[in-house]
Write a protein that binds this DNA or RNA. Structure first.
Length: 293
DNA sequence: CGTGGGCCTGTCTA
DNA sequence: ATAGACAGGCCCA
């Protein structure tokens, strides 16, 4: 299909660290979405795909989000405008909440290549194999599969201390038949509190799940990188005491997390999540190369 | 309510 | 090459 003026940068979108189970082979991106393997490729204004219909692709890549409007809304200063310009076409895609939740529980205290490996191992062992072209792809394990997985199995997937969180959260979701999708109808704050009740889910993980899979574009996850961005470019907009304290310390307490989170949401507004993702990725590409194949 | 330390293990860096 | 630091944090004392 022709994008017809709708801005999209597929490569940046799929390798900026918001989603972990896409692989590029011969200029096609292969992934599993909605239980089936699909492939996507962008050639300038042309977006090609196979094994999926147009409506599905448009929704998954959030092509109905008006990037121009969002850019105007969050473009409050030189730095963010530079990031927007540099990474123009990056979109926040609409992931499956279940996969997103487990992914970010696993993502704590890991770098992106390691996260991809864990999720690949999990899918290989507990998902179902599907074939597309010459690619073997695996669906993401269901809550039932992970709820019944043994600790030993999960450890062999490299989860380490995250194994018990995945186990507990999967059990709760499976046994109570919890519908993560229902959190879409709930306010950002209430949904965040609900998510934080799951094992292995704190403020940061909850914000990621809300932003990347539950349509809360105002969510503003604060990780080490975003903390760095704020310190390097927005410190003057914070209370001086807070900025000094953050410069001294290594990690974020919940209270300080919330302060930075509120700053982001108030400063950038209802699309703070987009600002976060541009700033996050921009900070990374400035200091290293894209950590993707 | 705020703070500090521990944590599995794969990557990255020197 | 090999050790040591660090990683898209969370939990518990």
């Amino acid at each position: 299909m022709n994008l017809d003026g709708v801005p999209l940068n597929l490569d940046v979108t799929l390798c900026c660290g918001q989603v972990f189970r896409w692989d590029k082979k011969r200029d096609w991106w292969y992934g599993v979405v909605g239980g089936k393997a699909i492939k996507v490729r962008q050639v300038n204004a042309e977006l090609d795909f196979a094994n999926a219909d147009m409506k599905f692709v448009e929704n998954y890549f959030a092509l109905d989000d008006d990037l121009q409007k969002i850019s105007c809304a969050v473009g409050r200063d030189e730095h963010i405008r530079k990031a927007l310009q540099e990474l123009w076409g990056l979109r926040i895609i609409r992931q499956d909440p279940w996969e997103c939740l487990i992914s970010y529980i696993c993502a704590t205290y890991k770098n992106i290549p390691a996260i991809k490996h864990m999720l690949m191992h999990l899918s290989r062992r507990f998902g179902e194999k599907t074939i597309l072209d010459d690619m073997e792809l695996f669906t993401f394990p269901t809550p039932e599969k992970l709820a019944n997985a043994s600790t030993k199995d999960l450890l062999e997937c490299g989860l380490g201390y995250r194994a018990k969180y995945v186990q507990e959260t999967s059990k709760r979701i499976f046994e109570s038949d919890f519908e993560l999708e229902s959190l879409r109808q709930v306010s950002y704050m209430r949904a965040k509190k609900q998510l934080c009740n799951f094992a292995g889910v704190g403020l940061k993980v909850a914000d990621c799940v809300l932003l990347f899979s539950l349509g809360k574009t105002e969510a503003f996850p604060v990780d080490r990188w975003v903390e760095r961005v704020i310190l390097n470019h927005y410190a003057t907009k914070l209370p001086r005491e807070l900025a000094q304290k953050l410069a001294r310390r290594k990690g974020l307490s919940n209270a300080d997390y919330t302060k930075l989170n509120v700053f982001g949401r108030e400063y950038f507004g209802e699309y703070a999540g987009y600002a976060q993702e541009y700033l996050y990725h921009y900070e990374r590409v400035k200091t290293q190369t894209c950590s993707d194949a």
